[in-house]
Design a protein around this nucleic acid. Structure first.
Lengths: 210, 210
DNA sequence: GTGGACAGAAGTGTTGACAATTTCGCGCAG
DNA sequence: CTGCGCGAAATTGTCAACACTTCTGTCCAC
């Protein structure tokens, strides 16, 4: 069952299945070569995770993010990733962040300068995952997973907004500096203000993103 | 299906079913008068919510909170309920909190003084729900629900710790004052420090609680 | 008396068939 | 030409039976 669920989850998160699309149990059962019951289990799991909505007797449709939901989620990301930054700073030795700081200061600055945002997004997401792992709080990690699945596509669209990548890079440099000197409170504050400015960028350009 | 799931959820949250207890599908199916398939659906939902653990071919057992999980959850409550306090202050008119402030300053002070903690817990949980509702962020509400289900019993045990109720009451008065004057940032800070001290109280008395 | 193999019991995992509900096309009255 | 009702098709909801895994108790060899 986990296989089907994860496969569908990945497809939805990467929008290989469009928001609003209907998921027919029979079709999926045939595609995966299993019985309908197992597909139903997978859909129930995705419903709990908030990736699909199931209407009784009418089937499952992929959740469509509306504007308000995006703001709800950004308010949550602000405090949750702020917490992750604080815990990561407290738990990991300061030199852990040296290499990341160097990368965001040097090579990635060039990358962003050249407009090679695809690669930059890769490094951004890798650092995000590293911080969450270092925070060492599985419940927090689980919650960030859930909201990241819903907005993965959005985050990428915000990063490629004009000027946004460079601003974000500078904010990450500042945060990594705080983390490198073990200042957990400051790291939390900086991560929070970084996400607030990402939210503001979304607000400004929302009509180009949604 | 929702009926079975919610019934089981309530029982687990209130520990009418003990942590570590095995849930036999056949028994539950008979008790609710439905087929095993629907019980299985309900158990799958509870597993996703983190209330039960399912081991392949060996059935479902109610999750047993260990020490580290409690700390994980308190770190999360700190930032999530802090966010709720901030949003509630921003969204609701300041006079919304007047009556709560009066109640926590007057009648509840007497209640706590007399040691009538059962009633106090009721008011405490009512205010908590009111703040979450006023925050108006359903994703946040959902996440707080999930972690509250797991620790409901614990929270009640912390409140009845010696001296804890009065400290908590005073912290709530301070927070409600900030909310009454519309100071959202301060309300968030105060809620966070309140939860930090609750976590410290748990830390100190953990052997009496778990 | 102790340890291991084996068989039966108990419980979970999976499936296919059947029931209930919704959707959609078609005919018909206005 | 449009709106309404009806019935067939499609789709989801439910169930009971079967398959597989794990647990348990008994028997026998040593």
């Amino acid at each position: 069952m986990a296989e089907i669920r994860d496969s569908l989850r990945a497809r939805i998160a990467q929008q290989h299945i469009a928001p609003g699309a209907k998921l027919r149990e029979t079709d999926l059962a045939e595609e995966f070569g299993v019985s309908r019951a197992r597909v139903r289990d997978a859909l129930a799991a995705l419903e709990q995770r908030g990736l699909v909505e199931r209407i009784p007797n009418r089937g499952a449709v992929v959740i469509r993010l509306d504007l308000s939901q995006v703001f709800y989620i950004y308010d949550l990301r602000e405090v949750l990733e702020g917490l992750a930054a604080r815990l990561a700073t407290q738990n990991a030795p300061p030199q852990t962040w040296q290499e990341d700081l160097a990368r965001f200061r040097g090579p990635l600055k060039d990358l962003v300068g050249r407009g090679d945002l695809q690669d930059y997004i890769g490094h951004y997401e890798a650092l995000r995952r590293k911080i969450i792992r270092a925070a060492g709080n599985p419940v927090l990690a689980e919650m960030l997973d859930i909201i990241f699945e819903k907005t993965q596509v959005l985050i990428r669209r915000i990063i490629i907004l004009p000027g946004r990548a460079e601003v974000g890079r500078q904010q990450h440099v500042a945060m990594l500096q705080a983390m490198s000197r073990g200042d957990a409170e400051e790291a939390e504050k900086l991560r929070r203000s970084g996400l607030r400015s990402a939210k503001a960028a979304f607000d400004k350009y929302q009509r180009f993103i949604l």
